[in-house]
Each structure stands twice: as C-alpha cells, then as structure tokens.
Design a protein around this nucleic acid. Sequence first.
DNA 1: TGGAGATCGTGAAACGTTTCATTCACGAGT
DNA 2: ACTCGTGAATGAAACGTTTCACGATCTCCA
Lengths: 335, 335
Amino acid sequence: MSPSIKDVAERAGVSVGTVSNVLNHPERVSDSTKESVLTAISALGFVRNSSAAQLRAGTSRSIGLIVLDLANPFFHDVARGVEAVADELGYAVVLCNSDDQTERENRYLQVLEEQRVRGVLITPVEVGSGRLDALRKRGTPTVLVDRHDPRVNCCSVAVDDVGGGELAGAHLLSLGHQRIRYFSGPLSLRQCADRLTGLRKAVTEAGLDPERVIEVSEERAMNARTAYSAAKKRFGGRDKATAAFCANDLMALGVLRAAVSEGRQVPGELAIVGYDDIEFAADAAVPLTSIRQPTQHIGRAAAQLLVEECDNPDTHAHQQVMFKPELVIRESTTG
Amino acid sequence: MSPSIKDVAERAGVSVGTVSNVLNHPERVSDSTKESVLTAISALGFVRNSSAAQLRAGTSRSIGLIVLDLANPFFHDVARGVEAVADELGYAVVLCNSDDQTERENRYLQVLEEQRVRGVLITPVEVGSGRLDALRKRGTPTVLVDRHDPRVNCCSVAVDDVGGGELAGAHLLSLGHQRIRYFSGPLSLRQCADRLTGLRKAVTEAGLDPERVIEVSEERAMNARTAYSAAKKRFGGRDKATAAFCANDLMALGVLRAAVSEGRQVPGELAIVGYDDIEFAADAAVPLTSIRQPTQHIGRAAAQLLVEECDNPDTHAHQQVMFKPELVIRESTTG
DNA sequence: TGGAGATCGTGAAACGTTTCATTCACGAGT
DNA sequence: ACTCGTGAATGAAACGTTTCACGATCTCCA
C-alpha cells in the first residue's frame, strides 16, 4: 500500500505528530525539521489519506450538487456558479447528475450523506421527496435550485418565470403582433405554466383578450425535434400566428428550422422568441431573441446561502431568493 | 453528531460487530437480530460513515473521470458511457471538470489520489504531465481518453481523426466539389492537424492536388462566433470554395449562419460538413452533415480498460484502442 | 544562578468502521 | 453422558489521520 504518515515520520526521524503539523500547521514547525519532513514526503511519494483525515476531523469541507441534467446548458452554468463560490470559500463540490430519475437522485443523496458533506444543493426530481426531508431532519443543510419549497423548510433560489413570460409577451406586442403561438412543454411543469401565465398577463395589460391572441401548442418533450414537427404541422396549414414564443431555446431552434424549410421569413413572416438564452441561441442561422436567466448567479446565490447556513446553523433564517430574467433582443424578432 | 454504529448496537442490544454484519453480510445474522438492528437503525436515522469504512477497508470502489469541458457534448456523452459501465461493475464515478487548465487538473488529481480512487480516466490538458506520471508510478491505473500516449505507458481510447477527415473529403469530392475550405482550430492540436491530413489524403487518392483543392482557415478558437466572422470575411469577397469542412460542429454552425446572412444557398452554393455530430447538428436551420464519433463507446471502452487493469494489475497489458468515426449525411451537403 | 517564557517536539487517544479469532449455545450422533 | 459440529454473536485490533496535554530545550533578564 501507499506510504503512511508513519513511514514519513520514521524516515525523517520525527514523530507522526510533527509530520501532521508540517502538513496542517507549518508555522508550528522549525524550518530545519520542516525541510527534512518534506524531503521524506517527496522521496516516499506520500499522499495524505483523506478518509483518515476526515474521519478524525469529523467534518468535511465539501458540498454536494445534484442537478437534473448536466447536458442542459442551464444546469451547466449553475454548476459553474456554484463551483466559483465554493472555490472562494474553500469548499469542494461533488457533482451529481440525477438524470431526472428519482432512483438515481436517492442513490446520490445516500452517497453524499455517507460522505458527510456539509450541505446539499439540489434540483429535486420532485419537491417534497421523503429522502430529502430525512436528510434535512438529520441536520444537513439543503438549498433548492430552480425550485421552491411551499413550506419554506429550506432556502431556495429560482427565477421568476411569470416575469419571463411577461417580458416575451410585451416585446412581441410592442412589435405589433396580434397572434402569438406558445410552443410549450407539458403545462404540468411549473416553469411552462408560469411562462404562459406571464404571457397572458402581458396581453391583458395591453388591453387585449388572451383568448383571442394566444394559441397554445403543448408538446410532450421540450426539444428541437418535437417543436419542429409541431411547427411544421401548423405552418403547413395556414396558421394565423405571426409570432412564436417557445418554452425553451431548443424548441425555438426547431421552430426556426420549420420556418426555414417552409420558406417562411424570420422575422418578417414569423417572429420567434426563445427561453434560456443558451449559447447556441446567438449562433443560430437567425440569431434568436430569448429570455436570459442569470444562471451563474443562481448557482452563486445558492452556494452562498448554503455556506451561510452551514456556518451559522443557529442564527440562520431560510430565504427564498427569486431572480428576474432579462430580455435579449436579436434578429429573430427584429430583422 | 450523527449516530454511529455503536449507538445502533447499544439500542438494539447487540455488539457493534453484529451491526456491521447486518450491513455487510446479512446472511451471517439470524432473522430476529437482523430485524431488531434494522429497526434501531431507522429509529436513530443511522447512516454509515464512508470515511471510516473506507479507511478500514483500505480501498474504495470508485474511479475518477477528469474531462476538459463538461459543456462540450462530446465529453458529456463520454461521461455517460463511463457511468453506465461503472454502474454495471459496481463502481462509483467521481466527475471532474478541468476546464482545460493545468492547475485545476492537478488539483483534481491530488484530490482523487487522496481519496484513494482505484483508477483515473482522463483527457489531460497536455499529455506527458508530471503529475499524472507520478500518479501512475505510485500504482493508480490510468486510461487516456481521446488522447494517446506515445510511450504506451498506459491504456488509451481515441478516435481516428485522420479517418474522419478522409471521410469528409471523400464525401465532398464524390459530390463534385473541387474547392474545399477547411475551417480549422489551431493546427497545433493533434485533432485539427489529423483531420487536415485525412482531408489531404482523400484529395490525393482522388487523383487531385491537395494544394489546389484545399484552402485552410486556421482560427484561434473553435466556436461559432470565430467561424462566423472568418466565413463572413471569405464570402464577402468571392471565395472560390464550394464546400466547407469544419473542425467541429460549432464552427459549422457559424459558417452556416454566415452563409445565410450572405444569402448563399446551402447546400446549393455552399456545402457544409461539420465534425462531432452534436445534438444540435441535426436541428440546425439546415441540418448538418457531420462526422460522428462513437462517444458513448469511447467512454464505455475506457471504463472497461480501467476496471480490467484495476482487477488484474499483474497480467494486464496496455492497449491503445482506436475507434472509427462515421459519416452522417444530412441536408447541408445534399439538399 | 535561577526562573520565566517562548519555541519545538512528542506520544497517546480518538474518530467509526470491518475483520477475525474466539466464545457460546444447542442439538445430533455415539 | 460425552463429544462433535454448526450457527450466531462477541470483542478487540487495526486502518491513517489529527489533536492536545505535556516535556524538553533554549533565551533572556533579574
């Protein structure tokens, strides 16, 4: 096996306590002994065994992050934000991908708890799962990402989706559009429903009737392919909509492709607004107008809340942070 | 602190050894004691401390995976492949994102070694780094992903980039193109250079002169934006090229956008071939012909090699696995 | 000269598991 | 009645750190 601190001590002719001090409190050790210990360490190729260190310390300096889908740019950016803050504060991040499966989520929660992470950041497959509550009850702080806990049992960070829908709607209305088609994912998802609510609100506030202005296409999956075929079907007949608002950018790309293949000018004959402002949005054949979420900030805020709770478990008060999204205008609405 | 195995033992009225047996060797324990131990466990909310377990066991059942960029669909798919195999074989995967920075890579290598992972899968920032060699020398098996070790000190899994360039070239030539522009990243990257080599080979094999057929645009970054402006510059003047071969799909998307904005028909006036076949390739405004790499298989193969080496450190012989890429034809070359 | 600090180092305990040799209880076989 | 075997539970050792109370040595000044 790999050499232990004991081997190092022996070789350097000091006690194990001294070696440990060189590693953790160098200022307590004289320069000469420090040097001989260090040479022994590199001669033996010693690497500290973190299991032992953590066992003794009783606590780790790491936090867990469980997201639904790392391939999704949204979560990817969130993760970056989390890592940045964790880095600053000296925490390590254990990255987990639940793939939207409760079973995987539970497995990771188990692993993280066994590792005695200080806290967990999570976008749960469903809010109110027992496994997560149990974790919290046992004293591990938890922060919800892109979700809210109706009972405010813990902190959470999310984005105002109603506001996002409103932004999109107001923008399209200001350009004179009177018929807007909303390409949505399942309306059972809070995000999709909220965005529709916001869109309706914008229409109402413009003094128009949502029932007349808005048409909804609810699709099973929120990807380019399903949006493409849905849009193709609409535009094959003669849809009266002059604008499309899509529940995410992938769907917007699908709609764009359908428009191109039907020979419909964008934005001349069809304006398109996406959601998320993923990297590809700006690089699409016609750069997409989109609703940008402050993803990195979400991650940063979540990590800060978590660390705050870890450091002051008693005085801590749970917060529900809500970020405002932002409209990014590109050529798909204003050629 | 959280309850230990000792607390459980006390509450269930048995010894700690018995509790441990319930956890790890249930068959050695009678049904009645097993039951009382289990009720004690759930009553106390006991969760095993993996640091202690691992310390005692001396070995973990986890492997590390360090990639250059998790946002890149290529690495994302590789990770999926790795996870799938690890899952089957009962290993846990520790996912790390080096972000192409040597410093981050080294930090993660350190952490993984401290955690005593059984092995490491890595796409190193640069091959032949000292930190990695040291790890290997100390007995931790290592497999290179999408890279080769010229000295064959370890296993590696990569894709034949020369072959990929050749596929693209042959395809374009068979469509009658005589002027091909290669939009490349830095030619100092083996991947970019290899793909050019392959392209040249295809031209030569068609009995043509690579010098006359191929023009190279070497860009700093391999993203849509740089490719867009590079392409814009070319097509603004009158480039004689009728086809573009791009070092990755992001660049291809940039070229496509430039073509659209210059009013150049794709594929009629410009055929485009990308590389990687990322998910968006099929969903682009004009679906992209691309070179697909068997990414999941790369991950699977790498994980299998690693586990093989972990399990049979003595009899193991290093292998350099090379996968063949595949041409996926879409509308950007054959309208 | 001696005593008070300051500076370094020591050694043993403790962290929570797993393992393994040992003990215990009990029924079967002679 | 005695041993033998079997199945179940025990208890102590060990894993590699960190911590902390305690010595040892040295310096400085009364």
